[in-house]
């Protein structure tokens, strides 16, 4: 692979659901590249197609038309999906919904070893889980025998990140990882994301509705509106010289400590 092959490359990528009058284009003619070791944020209001685009990148949805390449090869044809998911992993928005209620947390963390062709021996798996838990500041022994509903939202979101520390993928798709946790745990989650990028030199696609958050974490922003990428650029360019009215809207909508926001009559 040449050094400058982008991590992802999309050409006229489209995903639509339904037929006829009920046809809904969730991702509309998206063309972009994401370089290796880059952090790109997908920003937009809810329903604008961020999660569908994330699922396309994750190979959980198939494009209706257009092309999507991972490391220069179309992802739908790169053979065994498990090999793909060893490279490309995800954390999700609602950590409660992301875990199965019927199994213990440890059992579910262990399930990710399925992706390896050769499962490591039992002891090693346990050790790697413990290390990953420590990496996200959770005490391994405290979780023994616990089920998802017995933990707080912030802890659950860190568990999803622990999974990433175990798997050490090349690419992480993070779909609104901080929108369901309380604002105080948010800083912690972001810290671990940065740690992942630094330790594993990962490519990260960060999905959020909060352009402020995106500004803080990313190298480049894609602004989405009704399935289209309406603007892309560096955080400073996009936030200081927005060219699209939708970007301006997003900027105006965040409550900042230093700027007027909603005013009373």
């Amino acid at each position: 692979m040449p050094a400058d092959t982008p991590c992802f490359e999309a050409r006229n990528l489209t995903r639509a659901f339904g037929h006829g009058a009920r046809r809904k284009v969730a991702v509309d003619d998206a063309t972009f590249t994401i370089a290796e070791r880059e952090i790109v944020s997908l920003v937009g209001q809810s329903g604008c197609g961020k999660s569908v685009l994330a699922k396309l990148l994750l190979r959980l949805e198939k494009p209706s038309s257009g092309e999507l390449l991972y490391q220069g090869r179309p992802i739908a044809e790169s053979g065994d999906p498990r090999a793909y998911w060893r490279h490309v992993q995800a954390v999700f928005q609602d950590p409660y919904a992301a875990f199965n209620q019927f199994f213990t947390i440890r059992a579910q963390l262990k399930a990710c070893f399925r992706l390896f062709d050769q499962r490591p021996p039992e002891r090693e798996m346990e050790d790697r889980i413990d290390q990953a838990l420590l990496a996200v500041n959770l005490r391994p022994r405290e979780l023994d025998g616990k089920y998802p509903f017995e933990l707080s939202g912030g802890q659950m979101q860190r568990l999803l990140l622990a999974r990433i520390f175990i798997l050490r993928p090349r690419v992480l798709i993070a779909d609104e990882p901080t929108s369901m946790v309380d604002a105080c745990s948010r800083a912690g989650i972001l810290e671990y994301l940065m740690k992942l990028k630094q330790e594993l030199s990962m490519t990260i696609v960060f999905v959020t509705h909060d352009i402020g958050l995106a500004y803080y974490v990313s190298d480049r922003l894609f602004i989405l509106h009704e399935g289209r990428i309406v603007e892309q650029g560096t955080p400073d360019d996009v936030t200081q010289r927005p060219t699209s009215p939708f970007t301006r809207q997003l900027l105006d909508d965040i409550p900042s400590v230093h700027r007027p926001w909603v005013t009373r009559a």
Partner: peptide, 21 residues
């Protein structure tokens, strides 16, 4: 649901997902 998506990227096949998730 997200837990099914997670099971898929954990490498479960259709049978595993249907039975366990």
């Amino acid at each position: 649901r997200d837990h099914v998506a997670l099971a898929r990227i954990n490498g479960y096949g259709t049978l595993g997902i249907v039975c366990l998730h």
